[in-house]
């Protein structure tokens, strides 16, 4: 039941445009003609059950997984047609916050932030590396952890540092894979507030996948419910709450 949706104040050419994307693993069809538009400064939340293909979709957007069919455009470029060099350049505009934070555990927090920066020197915009790291850590409220190792950090702190590592390249889009999963309600709330804060501070567009409906309610400008590999239903949180469909209502119970 694909409901028509008005983009409201999010207009212009989309930063991410996905049309009829298909992806399967063996016999298992994960995405089966999925469509999506993500606009500038928009917070788009995708909800779906575990194993519904949400994480796969994010991985397809940065070509960690290759799509089987359909088209996928990021910042006006067809992701499937990019050379490795072009892809690496594009990836510096698309931040990715992994579910388990994915901090490099043999490196300190400083080295974790230096790692992407040294590979995209042009992204330092002439600023001193150390001051850039300090400023980014301050924006996530963890400047004091600069010399710590990931093993010394709590789950919430790891998530913040991972966000800082993403932000250091000043991406135009940030992809969040279950940003609040595995966190206690208070820390989850802090992470949600942080996502909103950095979105305003850095003017990023966010694509967030989650099954935390509280997170979806607070963050989303728009939501997509992913069922059977398609965007089964989309609209604002309030729109979707009012939908009279058992499969959609199940998410709000």
């Amino acid at each position: 039941m694909n409901q028509p949706y008005s983009h409201g104040h999010f207009s212009g050419s989309p930063l991410i445009e996905i049309r009829g994307v298909r992806k399967s693993f063996g016999e298992h069809q994960v995405l089966n003609g999925f469509d999506l538009n993500l606009h500038e400064k928009e917070n788009l939340v995708i909800v779906g059950k575990s194993g519904s293909g949400k994480s796969v979709l994010l991985k397809c957007i940065v070509r960690l997984e290759k799509i089987d069919g359909g088209s996928l455009w990021v910042l006006g470029k067809s992701i499937a047609d990019l050379s490795q060099v072009e892809l690496d350049l594009l990836r510096s505009d698309v931040g990715f916050l992994f579910q388990g934070s994915a901090l490099y555990d043999s490196m300190t927090v400083r080295e974790n932030l230096q790692f992407p920066l040294r590979r995209h020197v042009e992204r330092s915009r002439g600023e001193n590396e150390e001051s850039l790291i300090r400023a980014t850590l301050e924006s996530v409220g963890l400047a004091h952890t600069v010399d710590m190792l990931p093993e010394e950090l709590s789950g919430g702190m790891k998530r913040r540092i991972a966000l800082a590592r993403t932000l250091i390249l000043r991406p135009k889009i940030i992809l969040y894979d279950e940003p609040t999963s595995g966190l206690d309600p208070i820390t989850a709330k802090e992470i949600i507030e942080l996502i909103l804060k950095v979105q305003q501070q850095y003017n990023t567009a966010s694509l967030i996948i989650t099954h935390d409906m509280d997170c979806a309610r607070v963050i989303s400008n728009r939501m997509i419910i992913l069922i059977d590999g398609i965007n089964y239903c989309e609209g604002t949180y309030q729109d979707l709450m009012a939908v009279d469909d058992e499969r959609v209502r199940a998410f709000f119970k």
Binding site: V62, D88, R91, S92, F96, F98, L103, Y104, D105, R165
Partner: peptide
């Protein structure tokens, strides 16, 4: 063990999306 652990905790994917081979 080191690379295996990096693989399962998505550190290798994180490296790839940061533009490192």
């Amino acid at each position: 063990a080191e690379l295996g652990s990096m693989r399962v905790t998505e550190q290798i994917d994180a490296m790839e999306v940061s533009g490192t081979n």
